[in-house]
Design a binder for these strands. Sequence first.
DNA 1: AGGCAGGCTTTTA
DNA 2: TAAAAGCCTGCC
Length: 272
Amino acid sequence: MITIKITDDFDLKRIADSGQCFRWQPIEEEGYRVIHEDHCLCIWKVDDEGNYKLDCTEEEYKDIWSVYLDMEEDYRSIREKIDEGIDSFLYEACEHECGIRILRQNPWEALISFIISQNRNIPAIKASIEKLCERAGEKRIDSRGELYYTFPRPEAIVAMSDEALAECKLGYRDKYIRNTAEAVACGELDLESISVGTDEEILSKLMDIYGVGKKVASCMLLFGLHHLDAFPIDVWIKRVLEAEYVDGYPFDTYSPYNGVYQQYMFAYYRNR
DNA sequence: AGGCAGGCTTTTA
DNA sequence: TAAAAGCCTGCC
């Protein structure tokens, strides 16, 4: 167990509820249990001074969790680029949702998660993903003795029966998930090699995947590949653009952080 | 080429 | 009953 002090923007609940990740689980004492690849972290807020308690070693924090939580990035300075007088809406969104960060999630997990997310609300997305992990992930025990499952590897999804996959309630998306898992498992789709090039080039390659359109590809680019300029446009952001930016959104001004601002606006519009 | 209508599983509000 | 972090197919 270690204690760390975080001075940059950091809010566990806002990250957990931001819609970028679907497996953060609230636990006792204002804590969350976070699963990332082969690792599991329990993290608790200690006070309002930025102190947090983590059930890992200093080395694990440095090597895994500070990377996953994107602690090298200065979100306050990104937020403070917005001028209240010029863009009062975005300024308000940043203030209101201060503490959100863009996690460095596993690309494979992000891709599958956002294919599952299409045309569904967040509780339903979480339920499907958790089922998928129970059916095809590996069973583990965290430091508190609680059971959890890792996110399944591509091969494990390929090995699932149609019945097991159906139990995950993926609906018409089941064929997208199976197809993507097969493509990755056999090497036909290599997430590392398609992640090279400009954002436009990567988006285009992602959209070649069966079941991946512009929205899911943009989510993958932002949340799975950590391209902070990617700007997913879902129903909520569409409403924001129509209501608050009738004369167009200043993408060039906010580059290369369009995706970060998108996330503040998304949360702000959904929460109010 | 690019745009549009209709269908799609299931859950949630 | 409509909407939900949409996409695919078929048609024009």
